[in-house]
């Protein structure tokens, strides 16, 4: 009977009710990540290639893009896309408005732009760490340009930067909370709404914090799995 009482009192506690309510907004946060992270990954690879290419114009353009995005806070970027672009009449009348009037798509665009800047710098380090001998031996085996990238450079580079890129992924999970400031109701937005309703800030934000911790825990496990999978030569042989 004693345990039953504890369980019922827990189920009626504010933090548990909040937890359930914020949990139902988990898919909004996940949706932001599931769209922006894969696009960000591929664009980062492309941008990193452009950054190390011999074309000075391309390389300088990407370098200045990275410089600007890494030098400004994400909040400014989100606001610029949501409030800034929305205030321009020409954009309001163009086809872009279909996406830019939704806070969700503004969040996705801002997060993608942000992660590409950090990600391409990370991948550039990885690509430049591929030793010349590997590329030369790839060439001497008769790989074309695409084959060389796909079979030699990218596998080595991505393996090299997996821990660093993992950090970037965790930063992105945390960055989704900023999209709540553009009225998009993901976990932080819901927590803020609950706080306004119940006047119990600690319960609301701790419940949201637990969920973010859980999400980041999953992300860390995912990165660990990838690291293990793509570094078979570092595993103990048995």
């Amino acid at each position: 009977m004693f345990f039953a009482d504890i369980i019922t009192s827990f189920q009626e506690s504010l933090i548990f009710i909040n937890f359930i309510e914020i949990f139902s907004a988990l898919d909004e946060t996940l949706l932001l990540l599931l769209i922006s992270l894969p696009i960000g990954f591929f664009l980062s690879l492309l941008f990193a290639l452009g950054r190390v290419s011999n074309n000075i114009f391309l390389s300088k353009t990407i370098a200045s893009y990275i410089f600007i995005i890494r030098g400004t806070p994400l909040l400014v970027q989100i606001y610029l896309i949501y409030f800034g672009l929305g205030s321009v009449k020409a954009i309001r009348e163009s086809f872009l408005w279909i996406a830019l009037k939704e806070p969700f798509w503004c969040g996705v665009i801002a997060l993608t732009i942000n992660t590409v800047a950090y990600g391409s710098e990370i991948f550039r380090g990885g690509i430049q760490s591929v030793s010349k001998g590997q590329i030369e031996s790839g060439k001497s085996l008769g790989f074309g340009k695409i084959g060389l990238l796909r079979r030699v450079i990218f596998p080595i580079a991505i393996r090299q930067v997996l821990p660093t890129y993992g950090n970037e992924l965790i930063l992105m999970v945390k960055a989704t909370s900023l999209v709540s400031l553009t009225t998009y109701m993901e976990m932080t937005g819901i927590a803020r709404k609950i706080m306004a309703k119940t006047f119990a800030p600690i319960e609301a934000f701790v419940a949201a914090g637990i969920l973010y911790l859980f999400l980041n825990f999953l992300m860390v496990q995912f990165i660990k799995y990838l690291e293990k999978k793509y570094n078979p030569h570092l595993r103990l042989q048995n």
Partner: peptide
């Protein structure tokens, strides 16, 4: 480090 910065600020500001 596992919780968004915004959440920490909200927690300290309101709590």
């Amino acid at each position: 480090r596992g919780v968004p910065e915004l959440l920490v600020i909200y927690l300290i500001f309101f709590g």
